[in-house]
């Protein structure tokens, strides 16, 4: 069974704008920008595709770092750049349309970043106080 090629390339904040331009000049397409929290900050994953080819650029933005926007090259990236800014608190400079934190109507700042002081990580799902069902735990027998 053939599957998408798994190509993950590490890069840095300084290079990301030039690399994105290279992809555009090669005729590649912007697929997605994903934020995820890692121990030293927020990891940003830029995905590009050209038909069967599929590559991801990976960089880590430390707290306080400013990442250049790629939405001047790929206009549609503005959706994801505003999202990463609103949900993870990454500073992104020169977004094509910068909503300034108003793209998502969030009730607490940066809800998807656990380093945020506003996020309560002790929250667990319970439907009833008295007889709540057990949470699935790591040690459980898994699979289907």
């Amino acid at each position: 069974m053939a599957m998408d090629p798994q190509v993950f390339i590490n890069t840095t904040i300084a290079e990301i704008h030039d690399k994105a331009r290279d992809y555009q000049q090669k005729g590649w397409r912007f697929v997605a920008l994903t934020g995820s929290t890692v121990p030293g900050g927020v990891e940003l994953l830029y995905s590009f595709s050209d038909f069967k080819e599929f590559e991801q650029l990976r960089l880590v933005a430390e707290p306080g770092a400013t990442v250049p926007a790629v939405s001047d090259i790929f206009f549609n990236a503005l959706v994801f750049e505003n999202e990463v800014h609103d949900l993870f608190g990454v500073n992104i400079k020169d977004i094509a349309i910068d909503f300034g934190g108003k793209f998502y109507g969030v009730s607490v700042p940066t809800p998807m970043n656990p380093q945020s002081p506003f996020v309560d990580n002790s929250f667990t799902v319970t439907y009833r106080d008295s007889k709540s069902a057990d949470q699935p735990t790591d040690g459980q027998e898994g699979g289907n």
Binding site: D4, A32, T34, S36, T37, S47, S49, F54, Q56
Partner: peptide, 30 residues
């Protein structure tokens, strides 16, 4: 891992990251 799928509305992007436990570290759908 990252993969793509053609949905009725177009290409959909999935990204998953494991952390050694039964719970994923991050899952992303575009």
């Amino acid at each position: 891992s990252a993969s793509r799928l053609e949905q009725p509305r177009g290409e959909c992007f999935y990204y998953a990251k494991g952390n050694g436990s039964k719970f994923l570290e991050r899952f992303r759908i575009r």
